[in-house]
Simulated assay, not measured.
Amino acid sequence: MKSSNPVLSRLGRAAEQQRTGYGAYGPPGEPGYGQPYPTAAYPAAPPAVQPMTIDDVVVKTVTLLGLTGIAAIAAWNLIPDGYMGAAWIGAAVVGLVLGLIISFSRMANPALVVTYAVVEGVFVGMVSKTYQEFLGYSGIVLQAVVATFGVFFLMAALYKFKVIRATPRFTRGMIAAIGGLFALMLINFVLSLFGFHTGLRDNGAVGIIFSLVCIVVASLSFILDFDQIEQGIRMGLPQRYSWTAAFGILVGLIWLYLEILRLLSYLQGSSRD
């Protein structure tokens, strides 16, 4: 199946040249395209890079999750309460910048991805500690973690058994939905700076509905990740791009976790009233 993602298509063609070592001679479509045909004098070049596999993506994803978890636990226990606000804001800003750089970069950069995982771990740790210890939502962190991974594995099963597929229409709809949600979040944040409250992030009916919509969209975003991984493996992208694939899953898991955490706080807050 031909990829509908132009970036993946370009990376796939580049990966093919890297693997085969084909240069600039020979007719298009033939084995010798890009260099002289292999002969005794000019043997075929050995593969220059290894293509990524699903095992590569799994290992990298587990590695990033481990780093994020360790950073979150360390931040929770080591950062003094008086510096929590600064650590929260600093990690959020640095994580956003790193995420944008990684997302728009055409080359996989493992060092940036690993740094992102650690920085986001600090952010997640600060947010989690605030909810559980300072706002008094007992057990909320464990509940959110279990729910997050439960949703992730459910979406993986739905994709594996082809219950949900990343069709072109589905992909366009998801891109529009994600863009729309983040635009609403940004507008809500800017308005809140001027004292206007839309209710999108308040403990009320509007806030609960908005969180549920975010959870659904965040969950469905994994379908796009799984599809890109499948296409990348089919195209033979270099092994280093498994870091980029793992980064996409990590971003989705963090977003889903934060939305579930927020929704649980709404529900627990309602039960206190």
Rank of each mutant, 00 (worst) to 15 (best):
A246K: 08
G26M: 07
V118A: 12
G99V: 08
R10F: 14
T68K: 03
A91Q: 01
V151S: 06
Y241H: 15
Y116D: 01
F247Q: 03
A72P: 02
Y131V: 11
G180S: 07
Y137R: 00
R272Q: 11
N109A: 12
H197E: 07
P51Q: 10
R240T: 15
I70M: 10
G252M: 05
T171K: 04
V49Y: 05
F170A: 09
S242G: 15
P238Y: 04
Y83R: 03
G150N: 07
P46L: 09
R262N: 13
I79T: 02
L64D: 07
L250P: 02
F104I: 13
Y37M: 12
D225K: 01
V190W: 10
F182D: 10
A24F: 13
P46W: 00
A14L: 15
A48Y: 04
A144Q: 02
V49I: 15
Y241L: 09
S265E: 05
A177T: 10
A245V: 03
M235S: 15
L154P: 06
D55P: 00
G99H: 04
R169C: 08
P51F: 01
A15C: 14
D55K: 12
I208C: 01
F182Q: 09
A183S: 13
M52Q: 14
G69I: 07
G180A: 09
F134L: 12
L158E: 06
I249N: 02
T130F: 08
Y116P: 01
N203V: 10
V57M: 03
K162E: 13
R165N: 09
M126N: 08
S271K: 06
T171M: 08
R10A: 14
G32T: 02
L264C: 08
G204N: 15
Y131I: 06
L64Y: 07
Y25N: 11
L258V: 03
Q50C: 09
L256V: 06
F152I: 13
G150H: 08
E133W: 06
V62I: 15
S211T: 04
V163A: 08
R169N: 10
V216I: 14
Q35C: 13
L64T: 05
S138R: 11
L158C: 07
L200W: 00
R19Y: 13
I70C: 09
